[in-house]
Design a protein around this nucleic acid. Structure first.
Lengths: 346, 346
DNA sequence: CTGAAAGCGCTTACAG
DNA sequence: CTGAAAGCGCTTACAG
């Protein structure tokens, strides 16, 4: 055989576009054109190229391809914690949305840590991501200046700061929370424990505002008691235990974030109390296990798929029209009042 | 100012190594050398380069850097489902391990679908990942030939096929499951419902083998009843409901994977039964919520952090010594017999 | 319809 | 100690 006879690469090496070109007897430029389906190319050449691609098992290297283009086809996603199934579901939703969109999702977590959030975002920017989907741990997204400098399309979700230049997706936090309080009041509850993560999180503030509004309607704003729980189950359990130790509990507890729901139930269990006889419980953020407990835990259901879809749509819009004014989308929650709410005797 | 005066890039464009070189009055090659901390470079140059890097806010583009190197610094991770907190925790563990290792983790999910697993792995290979961490949905990992052809370092975990040329990390499935059965027997249970995902999964088979071994010791192998549940909560709920409908339940149920634990509890709740009075429940895979239910659910605890650490260690070893024989690591589970197991009267 | 050349942002021999 | 040149795998004008 001639030394320049085209042949399969030795295993361990992938064929490049040059290998395909050589085998099909055209230039790499032509192969590239055919692969991206643009430009007019003679039918025979197209056929030869496809044959060569098949024979060599060629697949383009998307990272190398992106290098020459100005922008890369990666969308970065930053969530606070993979272990929380709420965010796990969010990642899954976005992954599905990315599929077939031409973009690839790269998901990272901030571990509820603002410095880590910053370094994760910077790392994603180093990759020249086309866009960034961010659930900020607290307040405005870390590395905001870098994002702005590099004009990277960005959509904020879940914990969205009041004032931001970015696109955002929220749920109707205040309204949904108010709905929970109205239900509790209707069932005779007048003393409500509210477990929040931190007042720095805007979604917590919004939820609390809704609670206070409904409480004030019912004239019980004096007996709404707020416990600040910190970011995770550990901190929340401490805070909740400390409150339980102080004696005389309210008749109902409303956990404004997933880990607090766990913390409350854990303390209830540890002290031999019973839901809802001793304490009614409602959680903001519905996850699967809340339906398999006895009784099932009443919840504000955030439709994660819809939230992700809204954010993805914002992202695609932003990528297409970088200079449009920032948009804000609000997704409606559902309330599911399961067996964990007692009806009190008057 | 002279036209060739170095100056900050306009926002929206990141400085390149050439910008740094120009500002520091050296060549890009020298900048590269300094950045990677190798080769002898005059102290003055080093200082000027560092100053330029700082002034321009330069950060290397890791993807471009990798292009010239033979291998890229990305480790791909494939899990079956992000929504399952067991895998969510696994992703979190690996992310932490990757940090500061020089490798970047890219996590994707197969959605319990073998074709999707294959396409996800192929996509990761397109990225020229340095290594692959895979929880195969079933049997051998999809795209095995491609992985082998491209000689990509690969570690299998959790659902590891019996025969594989890859490194693997397992837990002591049989032993741990046997331990559960012994405990149930000791507490007077002689009729046990075992909920498995699928006999195609080797970890299920191993767990079942351990169960049958312990059952046979106790002479109750006739009254171990196996229900095949499929991959997720939906399929599992159907299967479990069908079994419950058939009447007369065993005194205990052992769920061999997370979604089955949920399915069992959901059916128990739906039918107004009580754990452990009507049914004792044990789950393989411990996740956070299982400690906050009433009663808490007894579980085989897979130490996810240790599993991830073992797999990461295998990966680093494999990357360093590509031709070493495949290694197998086994991690020990803990058993936590919580309140969901009743002691039966004789 | 096609290909040679330059370029994306780096790194890697190599020559000096 | 330093830089010019070539190269990683692709794409993008541009000329023919």
């Amino acid at each position: 055989m001639a030394a320049d006879e085209p042949q399969r690469k030795s295993p361990g090496e992938r064929p490049t576009i040059h290998d395909v070109a050589r085998l099909a007897n055209v230039s790499p430029a032509t192969v590239s054109k055919v692969l991206r389906g643009l430009g007019a190319v003679k039918a025979e050449s197209v056929a030869r190229i496809h044959a060569a691609v098949r024979e060599l098992g060629f697949r383009v290297d998307p990272l190398a391809a992106n290098l020459r283009r100005s922008r890369r086809s990666i969308i970065g996603l930053v969530v606070p914690d993979f272990r929380n199934p709420f965010f796990g579901s969010m990642v899954a939703s976005f992954e599905r949305l990315a599929e077939g969109s031409g973009y690839r999702l790269v998901a990272v977590s901030s571990a509820e840590n603002i410095e880590r959030e910053a370094s994760q975002i910077e790392a994603l920017l180093d990759w020249r991501v086309a866009g960034l989907l961010v659930v900020p741990t607290e307040g405005r997204p870390a590395a905001e200046t870098s994002i702005l400098d590099q004009k990277v399309a960005t959509v904020l979700l879940d914990r969205v700061p009041d004032e931001t230049v970015f696109d955002k997706v929220n749920v109707n936090n205040a309204e949904a929370s108010a709905g929970v309080v109205r239900e509790l009041v209707a069932k005779g509850h007048r003393h409500i424990l509210v477990a929040i993560a931190s007042l720095e999180r805007t979604n917590m503030r919004d939820r609390l505002a809704g609670i206070m509004a409904a409480a004030s309607e019912a004239g019980i704003e004096e007996t709404v008691e707020v416990v600040v729980c910190g970011p995770d189950v550990t901190t929340a359990t401490e805070a909740i235990a400390a409150r339980f130790d102080k004696g005389r509990l309210p008749s109902a507890a409303f956990a404004l974030f997933g880990p607090a729901t766990m913390a409350i139930l854990r303390e209830v269990e540890r002290r031999g109390l019973v839901v809802p006889t001793d304490l009614s419980v409602v959680g903001f953020d519905d996850v699967e296990w809340m339906q398999v407990t006895h009784p099932p835990i009443a919840a504000v259901i955030q439709p994660i798929d819809q939230i992700a879809q809204a954010a993805w749509q914002q992202m695609m819009g932003r990528l297409a029209e970088p200079s449009d004014p920032p948009k804000s989308l609000i997704v409606q929650c559902q309330l599911d009042f399961r067996g964990s709410i007692a009806t009190l005797q008057r």
